[in-house]
Computed example of a mutant assay.
Amino acid sequence: MNAFSTRRASIEPSSADLAFMWFQRVIAGYCLLFGVLYWIRLIGFHPGSLWRFDLMPIHWQVASVCLAAFFPFAAIGLWMNASWGAVMWFICAVAETTMYLVYPHMFGYRLPIVIAHTAAITIYAALWYLVYRERKAAQED
């Protein structure tokens, strides 16, 4: 094996790198969807008392405004594979999980959203660990 083929092999992403990148892009799509849903809630497109900003209780106003801004921002960062995108997504996931688990009397109890966030964070951590382990093994060679 010559130096060029060794260099090329180290430049090409591994299967764990590709899986991690595509998982981030899938999560980016979900973040964009959640962001759009929060914007729909803010502008009052859907009928209902919790679906218009001026009729929402203050706790829903604060949560909706923050998540309507943070979810699309996280989606952009995750799509670009930027480290801050994962941080923003983690903040959004923890915020929604806290809303629905700690304050169900204020926001309701939405177990599917909590399970989805927990599963996504677990898969993200596992894929990140695989990528980290592969890169560490490649550096040792």
Rank of each mutant, 00 (worst) to 15 (best):
P13T: 11
Y30W: 14
I27R: 02
Q139M: 11
W89R: 04
P13Q: 07
S83T: 14
W60A: 12
L130I: 11
L55Q: 08
I40C: 10
Y129C: 05
F4M: 12
W39T: 15
F45P: 03
L78W: 03
S15F: 12
Q61W: 01
F34L: 15
C92N: 09
I76E: 01
A16T: 12
A74G: 02
Y132Q: 12
S64P: 06
M80F: 06
C66D: 07
E134K: 14
A3M: 12
I121S: 14
W89M: 00
A116C: 13
A119Y: 02
G77R: 03
G35T: 04
I58N: 04
Y129A: 10
Y129V: 09
W79A: 00
S49V: 15
M80E: 05
L50C: 13
P104R: 06
M21A: 15
I91H: 01
I76W: 05
H59N: 15
A9P: 10
A126G: 09
V102Q: 07
L67P: 08
Y38C: 12
A82D: 05
S64K: 05
W60N: 06
R7A: 10
Q61K: 08
W22D: 00
H105M: 09
E12F: 07
L37A: 06
V94H: 06
E134P: 10
I58P: 01
E140H: 11
G48D: 01
R52M: 10
V26F: 12
S14L: 07
A82L: 03
P104A: 09
I43Y: 04
Q24V: 11
H46G: 09
I43G: 06
A93S: 03
S5R: 00
G35I: 06
V36W: 07
F45D: 05
M99E: 04
A19D: 05
H59G: 13
R52S: 08
L33F: 15
H105V: 15
P47I: 11
H46Q: 13
A126L: 12
V26H: 08
R133H: 03
M56V: 08
I40T: 15
M106K: 14
F90E: 00
S83P: 08
G77H: 00
H46N: 14
Q61A: 04
I115T: 15
C66L: 13
Q139V: 09
M88H: 04
F107W: 13
M1C: 09
P72D: 01
L78D: 01
S5D: 14
A126D: 05
V114I: 11
A119Q: 04
H59V: 14
A19R: 02
F34Q: 14
G77K: 02
F34Y: 12
I121C: 15
W51V: 10
Q61I: 08
I91K: 01
R133W: 02
I115C: 13
